[in-house]
């Protein structure tokens, strides 16, 4: 029922990485925050990015949906070059969903409206179909019955699950999560992590920045450790956590675990 044309085909095939970053560099003023980051994410994969505060994790994932323009290198999402002056941001952003640490719901609209807004306004989809999808998503994030609640009437964990549903309503091919449990109390962290884990298990491609090491270990197919703007070490969770090679990784894990 989408009123827009189907997304443009950039010659991407599912055997290629869904997301490919090559030598991405980014400076804010004189400070180089990303100093040549490269990574691949395959379709259906969940990767976790961990690292100390200020190491550039948020900047890295915000580059992927062009919230932050990069200085050099390439980022491709399903073959679409993000670092292109003529980038079709809508085409990119309908493929890439994002969830923020502070939820960032629209406080003047109900939970259901928050989920429906972008499909209606941005994708110009049919209202009835969007509403049915939004209600299904509310149920999926275990918030059936809260459709009419405003964000200010929901707990942090509930707001964050609405935010996840809001991103999913655009039917993205990849989801970016930036420390989405960092602002929550320990009880509500669980509900949100459960929702994300179900998504990953259903085959949604996920890029997660997290400080929840237990969760990263269970959910991630691959872990990346960043420090001072570079990827210091990466590998599958088992070898990464049990047998870290780089002294910086060892020091970081030693502090946290």
């Amino acid at each position: 029922m989408a009123a827009l044309s189907p997304p443009e085909d950039f010659g991407w095939t599912p055997d290629q990485p869904l997301i490919r970053l090559v030598d991405v560099r980014k400076s804010f003023g004189a400070i180089e925050v990303l100093k040549g980051v490269s990574l691949d994410v395959a379709k259906g994969e969940a990767i976790c990015i961990i690292g100390p505060s200020g190491s550039g994790k948020s900047t890295l994932i915000r580059c992927i949906n062009a919230l932050v323009p990069i200085d050099s290198g390439t980022i491709r999402v399903e073959g679409q070059e993000v670092n292109d002056p003529d980038l079709d941001k809508l085409a990119l952003r309908r493929k890439v969903g994002m969830v923020f640490q502070q939820y960032n719901l629209f406080p003047h609209r109900t939970a259901l409206d928050n989920i429906m807004m972008a499909p209606l306004h941005v994708l110009k989809q049919d209202r009835r179909e969007v509403e049915a999808r939004a209600r299904a998503l509310m149920a999926k994030v275990r918030l059936a019955g809260k459709e009419k609640a405003y964000p200010g009437e929901l707990s942090g964990g509930q707001q964050q699950r609405v935010a996840i549903a809001r991103a999913l309503a655009m039917r993205p091919d990849v989801m970016l999560f930036d420390e989405v449990t960092a602002a929550l109390d320990p009880e509500t962290v669980k509900e949100v992590l459960l929702t994300i884990r179900e998504l990953a298990e259903e085959g949604m491609t996920c890029i997660l920045v997290t400080h929840e090491m237990g969760f990263a270990r269970e959910v991630a197919d691959h872990i990346y450790f960043t420090d001072a703007g570079v990827i210091v070490e990466h590998g599958p969770p088992a070898s990464f956590f049990d047998d870290p090679r780089d002294p910086r990784t060892q020091a970081f894990l030693g502090q946290i675990l």
């Binding site: 919230l67 994002m98 960032n104 406080p107 003047h108 941005v122 809001r166 991103a167 655009m170």
Partner: peptide, 27 residues
Amino acid sequence: VPRTTTEAAQALGYTRLGVYRHVLLPL
């Protein structure tokens, strides 16, 4: 209006005008 609210709308694909009309102006 917090900058992050605007970013959330941008991340959903809203144009500058769309962000203004549907999110910034009402708030």
